[in-house]
């Protein structure tokens, strides 16, 4: 039955569907492809092709500002991803492993609303808050950026973890309890191993989101705290060379690598739910 329906109502038969789909792919990937190609340009222009070369990758590699910004980005992203994922895991457990009560939906919304609040609003709010704290404490290190990134990454990390928990059969934890596992042991030997793919997915998502952030970072950072994206933004205002393309390309590869790893982790067919 279902197969018949699928055949009769195949979306492929809608007129113009294939054309629009192809157009969307072009709009999405043509600029990225162009960017990657011009990263290998021998000339100094990002629009005129002058032959193949790796000089811009080498120049980026030797650019101390790029290296500093990259390291800073990675530092912030790793710490923030870990903090955000830990918080998100606890939040996901608290919102799924409980009997529903009044206010649960409210808490659930509160966790997700940061995804909808315009980033610029959060950025301005944090700028004001942090400048106060800076005056009180005198501290002006990377802590502010890490705190900000941790906060806005929580809802992103929360989504895959919650999804994983909701798909997990509650009777598994009940079975563990029935087999003499204390609540801690149930978590340690049943919930956590089964939740692991969700946690890793959350971690990677948070990492990529943090790595990628411009708006909040731009507002919160102190002088000399450029991350890779804000450094690139600053450079684009002055002179544009294929060095930017080269950096972007490396950045892109890193993200792709993470997504690939994530794909293989989340696929793992043998250890999946029956």
């Amino acid at each position: 039955m279902a197969r018949n329906v699928a055949r009769n109502f195949s979306i492929k038969r809608l007129p113009g569907f294939a054309t629009i789909a192809m157009l969307c792919f072009f709009v999405l990937y043509l600029p990225i492809a162009t960017l990657v190609v011009y990263a290998f340009n021998a000339g100094t222009s990002i629009a005129i092709w002058e032959g193949l070369s790796l000089r811009w990758f080498a120049s980026a590699w030797q650019n101390q500002q790029v290296i500093d910004a990259s390291i800073r980005s990675l530092q912030i992203a790793s710490v923030a991803a870990v903090i955000a994922t830990a918080c998100a895991t606890l939040a996901a457990l608290a919102t799924t492993r409980t009997t529903p009560y009044r206010g649960l939906t409210f808490k659930y919304s509160m966790l997700n609303i940061p995804l909808l609040v315009p980033e610029i609003v959060t950025a301005v709010a944090l700028l004001i808050l942090f400048s106060r704290i800076k005056v009180w404490t005198g501290y002006s290190g990377l802590g502010y950026l890490i705190a900000a990134h941790s906060a806005f990454c929580v809802p992103f990390a929360y989504l895959p973890i919650r999804a994983r928990l909701e798909n997990m059969d509650l009777s598994l934890e009940r079975a563990a309890a029935d087999l003499y596992a204390t609540p801690y042991k149930t978590f340690r030997y049943v919930t956590l191993p089964l939740l692991w793919p969700g946690i890793l997915a959350g971690l990677m998502l948070a990492f990529v989101i943090s790595l990628d952030d411009v708006v909040i970072t731009e507002f919160v950072k102190s002088g000399g705290q450029d991350t890779l994206p804000t450094y690139m933004l600053g450079q684009l205002r002055r002179v544009v060379t294929p060095e930017m393309n080269a950096i972007s390309t490396v950045f892109l590869m890193l993200s792709l690598a993470i997504v690939t790893v994530f794909f293989f982790i989340s696929r793992n067919p043998q250890k999946d739910e029956p």
Binding site: D169, R174, A175, A177, D178, L179, A181, E273
Partner: peptide
């Protein structure tokens, strides 16, 4: 008593085997 404190075990309707 909590389930883990009782000398009683259950065979669940959906078996609830640990898939990992």
């Amino acid at each position: 008593l909590l389930p883990n404190q009782r000398p009683v075990n259950t065979v669940f309707q959906n078996y609830a085997l640990f898939p990992h």
